[in-house]
Amino acid sequence: MTNSNGRPTRLYRLIAARMAGLSAAAFLGISTAYPHDAMRPELNNWFKSLKNKAGVGCCDSGDGQHVEAEWDMAKGGYRVLLKHPHRPTEPGQWFDVPYSVVIDQPNLSGIAMVWWWPRFDTRGSMIPMWRCFIPGPAG
């Protein structure tokens, strides 16, 4: 199908639709990456002040995420459920949180959070690289 100028309009529509879809996905991905509650801007400075036991800052422009966490009685430490960032539809995997990254101060946000990034071994298994973890109010 072509328009009056002889150009394939179907191709242009397809390209425009794909560009719109990719733009929407990028926008939604960026907007959901930030753990800070937009309705609670008073917490922004608190998030920026968080540091792990080695003095390394936790907050780096929104790379923290809300996380399901639990206290492991047998090991005397926390575990968190992390999802593979390239396979978000797969079930997550539980990882032990190193004591050195646990923040021992009240959690003003009220939600357990972790700051980490993935590394992958030669088999493609995910290995969390930890920055910080703050338990929820029950932790």
Rank of each mutant, 00 (worst) to 15 (best):
R40H: 07
A26V: 11
G6T: 03
W117H: 14
V67H: 01
R40K: 07
C58W: 10
G57I: 00
K83R: 15
I15M: 00
D96K: 12
I111W: 10
R87H: 14
P85L: 12
G64E: 10
A33E: 03
V102N: 10
I15N: 01
M1Q: 03
H84F: 05
V80M: 07
Q93R: 14
R119T: 10
K75W: 00
N52I: 09
N45H: 06
I30F: 12
W115L: 10
W71R: 02
S31I: 11
G136K: 01
S31D: 15
M113H: 12
G76R: 15
R18C: 10
V114L: 03
A24G: 07
T9D: 04
G92P: 05
M39K: 10
W130R: 13
P8F: 05
D60L: 13
G6P: 03
A38L: 09
S4C: 05
W116K: 10
V114W: 01
P128W: 12
R40Q: 06
A74E: 15
H36Y: 01
Q93W: 02
S125C: 03
V56N: 11
W46L: 01
W116E: 08
Y99P: 01
G92T: 11
L50E: 04
C59P: 02
A25S: 10
V101N: 13
R79H: 09
R79A: 12
Q93P: 00
P135R: 02
R7I: 07
G6Y: 03
P88Y: 13
Y99H: 15
G55H: 07
Y78C: 00
L28E: 08
G21I: 04
V56P: 09
K51G: 06
L82W: 02
G57P: 09
M1F: 02
Y34W: 11
D96M: 14
L11N: 07
P8T: 02
K53W: 03
A112R: 10
A16M: 07
G139C: 08
R79S: 13
W115H: 03
M73F: 03
K48S: 08
G136E: 04
G124R: 02
A112D: 06
G6E: 01
P91M: 13
S4G: 05
I103M: 04
P106F: 02
